[in-house]
Design a protein around this nucleic acid. Sequence first.
DNA 1: CTTCTTCCTGACCATACGGTCAGGATATGA
DNA 2: TCATATCCTGACCGTATGGTCAGGAAGAAG
Lengths: 215, 215
Amino acid sequence: MAAASRPLSKKEIRRENEKLILEAAEKVFAEAGFGGATMQLIADMAGLPKANLHYYFPTKESLYRQVVQAIFQDWLKAADIFDDAPGPVEGISAYIDAKMEISRRHPAGSKVWASEVMHRAPVIQDYLETTLVEWTEGRMAVIQRWIDEGKMDAVDPRHLLYMLWATTQHYADFGHQIETLNGGLPLTDAQWEAAKTSVKTIILNGIGARQNRET
Amino acid sequence: MAAASRPLSKKEIRRENEKLILEAAEKVFAEAGFGGATMQLIADMAGLPKANLHYYFPTKESLYRQVVQAIFQDWLKAADIFDDAPGPVEGISAYIDAKMEISRRHPAGSKVWASEVMHRAPVIQDYLETTLVEWTEGRMAVIQRWIDEGKMDAVDPRHLLYMLWATTQHYADFGHQIETLNGGLPLTDAQWEAAKTSVKTIILNGIGARQNRET
DNA sequence: CTTCTTCCTGACCATACGGTCAGGATATGA
DNA sequence: TCATATCCTGACCGTATGGTCAGGAAGAAG
């Protein structure tokens, strides 16, 4: 059937299988929640026997933990954009674009994250208290600097961040609702562009973001 | 112990117990998700034996369905405000206030709803396709009228609605994250006011909402 | 070729869960 | 007062699930 490649080395096998399992797990956890997900279903989706999952990941929780941690990494990475930007127009635009793209390409991850937080973060509370707190404070400082430099209105940086998270992740977490309201069809390329544009327009206007130098 | 009231009539008993069960169920479903919730836990929280739950609600699913339907009703009701308003400043302000208040007073309901939609709405898909679609189209028409009347910028009404939902519900669904970022403490009255103000300011400025008559 | 380590898996187990039921308690209404 | 309908619940049941394990297959190392 499939193009049988040469036998894989042990390391390759491990890497390959862990990847298969993690990908399947992310989907299943996203669709069913932690409680509703079953190891059997993840195994089927990964195309491996259930016992094999327990060979790589001793418990359901350890598998879940790794899924959530991977998502958290992506989440943070999307924000490096923020720091390098000269002002809110560039920085926030780029951040919205990046997060919207994640919502589009990686909706399962966003859902798992949302579910984890909604359930009071049973497995990544320590990350929230350390990494996320630091990250947030850093970004708030950037926004405050922009305000001090007169590049945008004096809005509360914290609530601006929440709005950015909420609006962008909404397109992943509530994607099903959005699809239903779109006649049951996934958004087209053009519709995604319209969504991005709407979010950027409203938020940038909303905070009175001003270009670095008036044209 | 408790002030023993006179014996309840059968009807009162039924009403009372159903209420107890539904309230407990909403909390448990919100905290654990449908799959993670157990009838035993709901029973304990309601202070009733498990078999009693099955007397009032034959299955876990039927109980869940009623919880979700009740939430959906609230959800829609909050939006009557919209129609009576003369323009976006009043209408959208009031809508944001109302939805923020729901997020604050009724976070469990919002979480159950979010969870249901994230899992592709297994029990209320029909509502999404009928009631929600109609509701959304009605509200989009109102917004479009405001645009046509020059009361706000020509933003995409659909994405504006999504932003309103996303930003307001975020304070319930991600309340735990927000609390963690607030030093582990729930938001104070003043902080809730600041949140409302931020959301309203950014969105109303963002859409260029103009008062009915210039002062 | 031999030994060692890693990978693999069918069969199995204990538990927890949703759901049932028989039979008792309690209100209602004639 | 008695009959009936409703409410209540401890004990029970079948199933599904997370997890285990013994033993085999297969690459790595020498």
